[in-house]
């Protein structure tokens, strides 16, 4: 019998089809650093029929909220998010790019009004999907490093 590199999980979330090299950024979005209570499995540079190479992240005992899924979409638009309950895929979600990313990114322009002490959420408008271009609704600047801007 072939030994599985990654065991199936009982309950939790499998984030598949992450572009190769982006798994650690997905972990960052999920706030997973060193201190975890359940098993987290990260597979990087896995052969994929669709993508040639991909990363996979499995997080046990945790289902992602829509805000987390939106954030993942910004750095891994090809990803799929599968919710696992009792070893079965209970929900299969393909992440989809919203028209606007609200409150999940910090504007990189230090002089933007959203970086002052104002009671507003940031709003980024998706001005192009491929390549992904996000423009701040307030200061009009295009975000250069999207992954670094995720809050």
């Amino acid at each position: 019998m072939r030994e599985l590199r990654v065991q199936p999980i009982k309950n939790g979330t499998v984030i598949d089809h992450i572009p190769s090299g982006m798994a650690l950024k997905v972990l960052k979005i999920l706030g997973i650093s060193g201190d975890v209570a359940s098993t987290v499995t990260v597979a990087m540079h896995v052969a994929s029929a669709k993508m040639k190479w991909k990363d996979i992240v499995k997080v046990e005992d945790r289902e992602l909220n829509p805000r987390e899924v939106d954030k993942i979409c910004l750095i891994a638009p090809s990803a799929t998010v599968n919710v696992i309950r009792n070893y079965n895929v209970a929900e299969k979600r393909r992440v989809s790019l919203p028209e606007r990313a609200m409150g999940i990114l910090k504007c990189a322009n230090p002089n933007c009004i959203t970086n002052q002490k104002e009671p507003v959420e940031t709003v980024f408008i998706v001005s192009s999907k491929a390549p992904l271009l996000l423009r701040c609704r307030y200061c009009d600047r295009v975000l250069e490093d999207i992954a670094a801007a995720i809050v």
Binding site: N111, I113, Q116, E118, P119, V120, Y138
Partner: peptide, 28 residues
């Protein structure tokens, strides 16, 4: 905050003209 200043001025006038050192202030 600018937001509070605007809420107040909104009641005093019919149109607001703003110049501000921060980008995006007028949109806010």
């Amino acid at each position: 905050t600018l937001a509070d200043t605007i809420r107040m001025v909104d009641a005093y006038s019919d149109v607001i003209v703003i110049r501000h050192p921060h980008e995006g202030a007028a949109r806010l």
